[in-house]
Design a protein around this nucleic acid. Sequence first.
DNA 1: TATAATCCGTTGTTTTTCCAACATACTTTT
DNA 2: AAAAGTATGTTGGAAAAACAACGGATTATA
Lengths: 218, 218
Amino acid sequence: MINELEKIKDSVLLQDIKVEELSSMLGCLRGVIKHYKKGEEVLSQGAEIKKFGLLTEGKLQVVQYDYLGNKSILSIIEPKQIFAEAYAYVNKIPSMNVEALVDSTVLFLDSDKLSSPCQNCCSFHKQLVKNLLFIISNKNVNLTEKIECMAKRTTKEKLLTFLSLESIKQNSKEIYIQYDRQGLADYLGVERSAMSAELSKLKNEGIIEYNKNWFKLL
Amino acid sequence: MINELEKIKDSVLLQDIKVEELSSMLGCLRGVIKHYKKGEEVLSQGAEIKKFGLLTEGKLQVVQYDYLGNKSILSIIEPKQIFAEAYAYVNKIPSMNVEALVDSTVLFLDSDKLSSPCQNCCSFHKQLVKNLLFIISNKNVNLTEKIECMAKRTTKEKLLTFLSLESIKQNSKEIYIQYDRQGLADYLGVERSAMSAELSKLKNEGIIEYNKNWFKLL
DNA sequence: TATAATCCGTTGTTTTTCCAACATACTTTT
DNA sequence: AAAAGTATGTTGGAAAAACAACGGATTATA
């Protein structure tokens, strides 16, 4: 257990919480550690969620099957990240699965206990709540930005919206993006090759320059 | 002040908080009431946000101007709803404005105070945090669902994804939707008339039936 | 280093969407 | 009930995106 805490003590969720407090936190939040083999289901569609997860080791993917049975990957969970937190707080049945991409270890924490601190109002509780609010709010802002891009009607506008948002975030006309072309196309909800063609056009029109992950707004 | 509290005491944020506790809460969270004339700016782009708002009276709209200066309405805020809460918890400068559509009254609450309860750990704090987590998580789930719809490549798929999500939520093949055609088109990010045409096609193909706000999946 | 695998851009064709304009139905007002 | 306003459906042409297929470049691997 101590070993697991060591791996996640500098996660965003546990930020600014003293190491000495971590183990008492585990008890308070009914921390449970579970191990999963590659390919195993960590959370399955339709099951009610009362705890959220903090990945201590391995890699997970959040997938969703639509009305036709088509699989789509919603996100990849890396160590120190939390998942299923939104569904733990709204009492809705999630419509997605979480699967282990490699052998993984997850620390589950009780969402009810987190938001209803114990009698003695331990100091770490304040910080935990603050961190959780930050994480969820941040996700919220990111989702809103993605929607802002996707809502544009043309691929050209989607690209320019994305790039100008990045430009603001990176506070520069020259930016580096985290996605490869396929990843960017998925993010914007368009087809890769069509997007590539559109990028070329933007370059020819003298609106942007780019090379691999580097982009410049002119 | 008492008058204002009366109007919002059954909002989601203040759910399950005793009326007697509300006024002490106001002090603790540094509650400030502000009035706005129709057309006035409630929050302006680029200004740092330390407090979030709870609309007690009137109507607000959240608008955004993109890189070309085009205005788009992100959401309409009705009484008892909160706004700007996500931006209050991530330390990001918001890229949107909030404007008063009619004369409005807003109660601003200190986001820091909410997540860092006072010494005596008042009982309402627990409930407030719980409620806030619920609201933000809920928004999160809704945004994710919208993205799920928008990510589909064709209008037909967007419609069917939306309808089947509603079908699950309303637990029936027959559903009533909250949007009119223009609203639904905006939600899905497509053009209204093209969407209408697609709906007709789906009806002809025997995949759905509909009449005004009523839809049935076959 | 050779080979395989992956990523990225290009092109032509097919499909879908947008857009504008108009017709019809429904609602609200007077 | 007439008139005006609003919401929805329809259509055809223009624009854009998807799709498939391919070639060159880069990266990973044997």
